[in-house]
Amino acid sequence: MGDSVEVKVVTTDAALHFYDPKDVLAEVLTDQHEWNAWKKMSDPVMHIQLRNWADMFIICPLDANTLAKVAQGLCDNLITCILRAWDERRPVIVCPAMNTNMWNHKFTAIHLSTLTDVLNYRVILPISKLLACGDLGVGAMAEYRTIVDEIKEQVELLNANNA
């Protein structure tokens, strides 16, 4: 694997509640960036540009809302529009994170099945620990090292396929 990768962060407005984009050492893009970039028919469309640029798409964390949207094929924000236009030959890794009750809900199993069995996405399962809501249980995003190891494995596969 090479020494560096280029990362762009695409975030939902709701996710901005949890972090400040100024603290991120990468370009952070929101829905507003897409709409600000597009004024007329000949202008570039950001979700298509990002789809064409990226070799891999990682949703980390994947909340229950975005999981449901992706599984149903909805595309009402920058993230879901990129995925709806995504080249299915390129890997997608998702890292679910949600309350234990949401994780155990039947819809979650149905939606994850769509992502894995239909869309061929890689799912890094959540772990059990104290959650943001104060509950203790399964639903916390996997440890970062687990996620990084999966990303490295996918990069190596991409490099081997492009060699």
Score class of each variant (00 low, 15 high):
Met1Val: 08
Met1Leu: 12
Gly2Trp: 14
Gly2Ser: 14
Val5Leu: 14
Val5Asp: 07
Glu6Cys: 09
Lys8Phe: 07
Val9Gln: 10
Thr11Trp: 08
Thr11Gln: 12
Thr11Met: 06
Thr12Ala: 14
Ala14Cys: 03
Ala15Cys: 09
Leu16Asn: 08
Leu16Tyr: 12
His17Lys: 15
Phe18Ile: 09
Phe18Val: 12
Tyr19Cys: 06
Pro21Ser: 08
Pro21Asn: 05
Lys22Val: 14
Asp23Met: 08
Asp23Lys: 11
Asp23Trp: 08
Asp23Ser: 14
Asp23Leu: 13
Val24Gly: 04
Val24Leu: 05
Ala26Gly: 10
Ala26Lys: 15
Glu27Cys: 05
Glu27Gly: 04
Glu27Ser: 11
Val28Leu: 11
Val28Gln: 03
Thr30Met: 02
Asp31Pro: 01
Gln32Met: 11
His33Gly: 04
Trp35Glu: 03
Asn36Leu: 13
Lys39Ser: 02
Lys40Arg: 15
Lys40Asp: 00
Lys40Met: 14
Met41Asp: 09
Asp43Ala: 10
Pro44Arg: 13
Pro44Met: 13
Val45Asn: 06
Val45Thr: 13
Gln49His: 11
Ala54Met: 05
Ala54Pro: 10
Ala54Gln: 06
Ala54Leu: 05
Asp55Phe: 07
Met56Val: 10
Met56Gly: 10
Phe57His: 12
Ile58Arg: 01
Ile59Ala: 01
Pro61Asp: 05
Asp63Ile: 00
Ala64Thr: 00
Thr66Pro: 01
Leu67Met: 14
Lys69Asn: 03
Val70Pro: 02
Val70Asn: 03
Gln72Asp: 01
Gln72Pro: 01
Gln72Phe: 06
Gln72Trp: 02
Gly73Lys: 13
Cys75Gln: 06
Cys75Ala: 15
Asp76Met: 01
Asn77Trp: 03
Asn77Phe: 00
Ile79Cys: 06
Thr80Phe: 04
Thr80His: 09
Ile82Asp: 10
Ile82Gly: 11
Leu83Thr: 04
Arg84Thr: 04
Ala85Cys: 04
Ala85Arg: 10
Ala85Val: 08
Trp86His: 11
Asp87Met: 14
Arg90Ser: 15
Arg90Asn: 14
Ile93Gly: 05
Val94Phe: 01
Val94Gly: 02
Val94Pro: 04
Cys95Gln: 11
Pro96His: 01
Ala97Met: 06
Ala97Val: 07
Met98Asn: 06
Met98His: 03
Asn99Phe: 04
Met102Ile: 00
Asn104Gly: 02
Asn104Gln: 10
Phe107His: 09
Ala109Phe: 10
His111Asn: 15
His111Arg: 08
Ser113Tyr: 10
Thr114Trp: 03
Asp117Glu: 04
Val118Tyr: 10
Leu119Ile: 05
Asn120Asp: 04
Tyr121Gly: 12
Arg122Ala: 11
Leu125Met: 09
Leu125Asn: 07
Leu125Trp: 02
Pro126Cys: 05
Pro126Met: 06
Ile127Trp: 00
Lys129Gln: 09
Lys129Ile: 03
Lys129Met: 06
Cys133Ala: 12
Cys133Leu: 10
Cys133Glu: 13
Gly134Glu: 00
Gly134Ile: 13
Asp135Tyr: 07
Leu136Met: 11
Leu136Ala: 07
Gly139Glu: 08
Gly139Lys: 08
Ala142Ile: 09
Ala142Met: 07
Thr146Met: 05
Ile147Asn: 01
Ile147Asp: 00
Val148Trp: 00
Glu150Ser: 09
Lys152Glu: 11
Glu153Gly: 04
Leu157Met: 12
Leu158Val: 06
Ala160Leu: 09
Asn161Arg: 10
Asn162Glu: 15
